[in-house]
Design a protein around this nucleic acid. Structure first.
Lengths: 138, 138
DNA sequence: CTAAATTAATTGTAAATTGCAAGTGATTTG
DNA sequence: CAAATCACTTGCAATTTACAATTAATTTAG
């Protein structure tokens, strides 16, 4: 990672610092769109993230204010992660990315009715996805 | 980079393979939103990309169908890059990312009237930005 | 016509990051 | 209380990145 500069001006720069790596967006996808919450659940993504990388990304994501780390009071070994509004506000970015990939990659698939709703009533879809993600965690 | 799998299914995966690194989105920004076309222009971005990294990214971006490499017939030393429709269709992604960064990073700035138009008439803004980028290159 | 400058890279190497395998400490389960 | 589970950490090899120097092709200046 290049040294971060004070008084960064380009918005793309900041975004790349926060999620411009190979794994952060995938973890956010799992937390926000796949309903995963626990470390062990995040380990099982099809992309196969290594445990040390997952741990270091979760640490950085907490530092960056995307997630909050919590302990399951009923089993103190278990740790889960809640997404913040800052993370939830990345849902539109994830959806735009998905829309693009579905067009340009033959192997990319997403629930077709999701893509349809994304074209027809994006605002409502985003609101629902956010609410679903939020509700899961209280 | 982890090995890419055949029959990739998640759209986010594909996107990360194509532009999920530290530099590709910045180069696309310069090509599509800042009107840069020449290698030497791309070298002067404030973020300071190293020349070997720029060269390797441009090669990969051409492989991935985001840009086309061309030679200036009036000065055969000079090389410029044109963006494809595939790249232009990433403008909405760049704009969504910018919207998010402007909210969450105090140091991020973007032309305020651009952000305003992004909220009020996103489709028209995107069409105009694409057209501007396209026109520049013929 | 030739020497210097410009452009778009490539090459070499050190530093940083990633990926993989194994191990650890706290808890819970049988 | 021994074994299993969970969320990591550690060690190390392999890959990628950053920085500096060099190169080949072409153009410009004198």
């Amino acid at each position: 990672m290049p040294k971060s500069k004070l008084n960064n001006k380009c918005p793309i720069d900041y975004a790349l610092e926060v999620f411009g790596d190979r794994w952060t967006l995938l973890v956010l996808r799992d937390l926000m769109l796949s309903g995963k919450r626990y470390y062990r659940e995040l380990m099982t993504s099809r992309e196969g993230i290594a445990t040390n990388i997952l741990a270091s990304r979760l640490r950085k994501m907490e530092t960056d204010g995307l997630i909050v780390r919590k302990q399951n009071p009923e089993d103190k070994r278990q740790v889960f992660y809640e997404v913040t509004e800052k993370a939830l506000d990345l849902i539109p970015v994830l959806l735009e990315i998905s829309r693009w990939s579905v067009i340009y990659d033959n192997d990319s698939a997403a629930p077709p009715e999701l893509m349809q709703r994304l074209n027809q009533e994006p605002e409502l879809l985003i609101a629902e996805l956010k609410e679903t993600a939020r509700t899961r965690q209280d």
